[in-house]
């Protein structure tokens, strides 16, 4: 139950080149890549049913996008009837092409 309720989904741009970060020494997929993290709770108003997160990449595109599904996030959404959405996202922009 715990494992199946807490996992990540990562989408990677097949032909993209990630924005590099020489200071990122993590030992995972993100090593050497410039990672941006969104970790927040979105509160929707009574008449609102969906939302957009508007992010900017200098290159104009995303290299990868990882969405984390957690048990806590699912419970929060359930008990607030979908009005509070826990968002945990990691993304990497495309490297600027020059």
């Amino acid at each position: 139950m715990l494992f199946s309720s807490c996992y990540s989904v990562r989408i990677v741009n097949r032909d993209g080149i990630p924005e590099p970060d020489p200071l990122n020494t993590s030992r995972d997929f993100y090593k050497g890549k410039k990672v941006r993290i969104l970790d927040t709770v979105i509160t929707l108003k009574p008449l609102e049913g969906e939302f957009y997160l508007i992010e900017k990449c200098a290159s104009g595109g995303f290299y990868s996008f990882e969405y984390r599904v957690t048990l806590g996030g699912a419970l929060l959404s359930a008990i607030t009837f979908g009005k509070k959405r826990k968002v945990q996202i990691k993304y990497v922009c495309l490297k600027e092409s020059n």
């Binding site: 020489p22 490297k95 600027e96 092409s97 020059n98």
Partner: peptide, 8 residues
């Protein structure tokens, strides 16, 4: 570190 120097 010169990875951003990528003109072509």
């Amino acid at each position: 570190y010169n990875a951003a120097m990528n003109m072509k």
